[in-house]
Each structure stands twice: as structure tokens, then as C-alpha cells.
């Protein structure tokens, strides 16, 4: 049996009485590629925020790599190897592209020598295809490039689990393929990936398993083809 790397149980979150998440379970195995889908406003981002420590769940527990991290602050989760991207890119605007990458190298990985950090940053920038833009301000980047920067910053944390929150929204078909190839490469290196995505083609190509959240509850969890044939999933996606 393959070990679990991330296991969320009964994660519940309410905002002012409105239930954003109701007892959501999710398991990610070592080296697994899972797609998390659901309509807009279904609670996917809230779930990611609970997993990564940006929000504190009202109930439930999160086990990461054998440790209970339910109450662990976000920065410590990042240090232990749980990295994420943001759906709307959130670069450090006052820094250059390379300096953005250097922040997790310094803080999440723990490098201290400026030389090592700079070299490692350049490797990552080349990996995500931003090598030429290292000295630019994020303000000068296109949407695609900003998403690559998000991905690069998450990678720089040397994660065991990467949560990619809609990194492909608004990208062209070839750009989607480019990012998918990158994600596959990372996965081949042993990183487990949770892909939150709207582009079904990408999810079906990428995921070994699909989890569906609708209105804050998990309604399906299984092999991509089987899940997509499930009646309630179809209804949630195609409407009544």
C-alpha cells in the first residue's frame, strides 16, 4: 500500500453562519495526481485555504506526512513541504521576479548563502520558463507569466505536495500543455499534486483521480471516467 501524504478529514468552515465547507474529506497518496473540481463558489478555494493554513477550519483535522498540522501556522506548513499557488497571482510587487523566487528558497527551504539562493532561483526560473525575466518587476509580466511565477515560487519551497489553484485559467491550449508538461515532470520527480482546475481537458489528461466539491460538500471521489459519468456530477456541471 502506498503511504498517504495528505489526509484531510471532516474539514468544515463557516462564514457568518454560511456553511462554506461541510465535512470535506480528501486523501492524497505519495506521488499521486489528483484533480479537484467544482463550480465557482463551491468552496474549492476555501478548502485550499484551510489545507494551507490561510484559514483555520472550524472543525476537522489535517494530517500531512504523518503529522497533525490542523493548528500549524501557514509558514510552518510551507516549510514542511506543503506549497500552493494562488488563483489570482499574488507576487511580491516590490521585488524582482528572481527575488520573488528567493523568498521561499530562504524561508521555506532554509538556504542562507546568497550565492546558493541566487543559483537555485535561476534553476527554478529556467524550469518555469522565466529565465529571461529574472530582473523584471512582476508589474511587467503578462498573466501567463504571473501564473508561471506563482508556480515557480511554490516550487522553490521544494514541496512534497503542490496545490496548484487554477494555474491554467485564461491560458491558450499550447500554454496549458506547457504547464501540464511541467506538472508531469514535477510529479515524476516525486511531488504529489492537487490540481484545482476548470479546464476539464487538462484535468482529464492530468489526474489519476478526481474529487468533486459542490456547495461545500464532496459529492464524488474516484477514477476520472467514472466520476464524470456520475449523475449528480453531470448535473452540477451542466445545469438542470
Amino acid at each position: 500500500m502506498i503511504a498517504k501524504i495528505l489526509e484531510a478529514t471532516g474539514v468544515t468552515k463557516r462564514f457568518d453562519g454560511f456553511a462554506a465547507l461541510t465535512s470535506v474529506d480528501l486523501t492524497l497518496l505519495k506521488g499521486e495526481r489528483v484533480g479537484l473540481i467544482g463550480p465557482n463558489g463551491s468552496g474549492k478555494s476555501t478548502f485550499v485555504n484551510c489545507l494551507t493554513g490561510i484559514l483555520a477550519p472550524d472543525d476537522g483535522s489535517i494530517i500531512f506526512d504523518g503529522n497533525d498540522i490542523t493548528k500549524t501556522p501557514a509558514w510552518l506548513r510551507a516549510r514542511r513541504g506543503l506549497a500552493r499557488t494562488y488563483q489570482i497571482p499574488r507576487p511580491f510587487r516590490g521585488m524582482t521576479v528572481q527575488e520573488n523566487i528567493e523568498v521561499p528558497l530562504r524561508f521555506a527551504v532554509g538556504h542562507t548563502s546568497a550565492g546558493t539562493i541566487s543559483e537555485a532561483a535561476q534553476v527554478i526560473l529556467d524550469q518555469v520558463g522565466l529565465g529571461e525575466k529574472a530582473d523584471l518587476s512582476p508589474k511587467g509580466l503578462t498573466q501567463v507569466e504571473l501564473r508561471k511565477l506563482e508556480l515557480g515560487r511554490a516550487l522553490a519551497a521544494q514541496p512534497k505536495v503542490l496545490i496548484a489553484d487554477e494555474v491554467m485559467a485564461g491560458l491558450s491550449e499550447s500554454e496549458v500543455d506547457e504547464i501540464l508538461a511541467l506538472l508531469n515532470r514535477l510529479n515524476a520527480e516525486g511531488i504529489s499534486i492537487l490540481l484545482i482546475e476548470h479546464i476539464m481537458r487538462a484535468v482529464m489528461l492530468f489526474a489519476q483521480r478526481i474529487v468533486v466539491i459542490v456547495a461545500g460538500s464532496k459529492i464524488a471521489d474516484g477514477l476520472p471516467d467514472e466520476v464524470m459519468q456520475q449523475e449528480d456530477v453531470e448535473r452540477a456541471y451542466l445545469g438542470e
Partner: peptide, 25 residues
């Protein structure tokens, strides 16, 4: 120092800083 770099990250975006491993508090 690392303190200044971390503070700059916090100033730009505190949540993103946290998810990059910066102990903001």
C-alpha cells in the same frame, strides 16, 4: 538581513509571504 527580506514580503503580500515560509507574526 533575512528579517528585512521577510518584512518586505509581508509588506507586499502577507498571505503569499506566509505560504512562502515567512513566519510573519
Amino acid at each position: 538581513s533575512w528579517i528585512g527580506i521577510g518584512l518586505a514580503a509581508i509588506r507586499d503580500d502577507e498571505a503569499a509571504a506566509e505560504t512562502s515560509g515567512v513566519p510573519s507574526l
